[in-house]
């Protein structure tokens, strides 16, 4: 992506805040691992490597990586990031969340049709009055193929029950 990081490192003195946040997240994962495996019983097995040993190694490594990340953050070794637009991300995440929440009650077609429409909206197609019905019909066809013919267990809702 950017092989000329070293040039910028001399200009950029301030630590990279995002990198520090990543380091903190890594350390937090390590802490969670330490905490959780400490309650495990080292069962009297015949291997000296017990259920908690490997997780502990991983946690130590994560701490090491967190420290390394902090060092790079201060040296400004992290690559430049492109500006992100968060609007589209919100649309798509909303679509996935809607699908997750609606799946069991509204059934596969309605839930996934909404995901389809909101994803398209994330990419600029905002005519939801049109894309939602299109998505639902498309998903219903897919449901008929996969659940009807192939016996895949895709949750059925009011729409699907018309065909059962």
């Amino acid at each position: 992506m950017s092989r000329d990081n070293n040039k910028t490192s001399t200009e950029q003195r301030r630590p990279d805040r995002a990198a520090l946040a990543i380091a903190a997240a890594l350390a937090a994962i390590a802490a969670v691992i330490f905490l959780d495996v400490s309650r495990l019983r080292e069962m009297a097995g015949y291997s000296q490597v017990g259920p908690a040993t490997v997780p502990n190694w991983i946690a130590f490594a994560l701490i090491g990586l967190a420290i390394w990340t902090v060092v790079e953050a201060f040296r400004g070794d992290f690559p430049e990031r492109e500006k992100q637009q968060f609007g589209p991300v919100v649309w798509i995440v909303a679509g996935l969340a809607a699908q997750m929440l609606l799946l069991t009650t509204a059934g596969f077609s309605i839930a996934t049709g909404i995901l389809f429409a909101l994803t398209a909206a994330g990419f600029g197609k905002r005519k939801l009055w049109m894309t939602i019905p299109v998505g639902i019909v498309l998903c219903l066809v897919i449901w008929l193929i996969f659940a009807g013919l192939l016996q895949l267990s895709l949750p059925a809702g009011p729409l699907e029950h018309l065909f059962l």
Binding site: Q99, T112, A120, L154
Partner: peptide, 14 residues
């Protein structure tokens, strides 16, 4: 893109 990625997510979740 809008239809391609909407389709990808549809099939990924399916």
């Amino acid at each position: 893109k809008p239809w391609l990625y909407a389709g990808i997510l549809l099939f990924a979740t399916l």
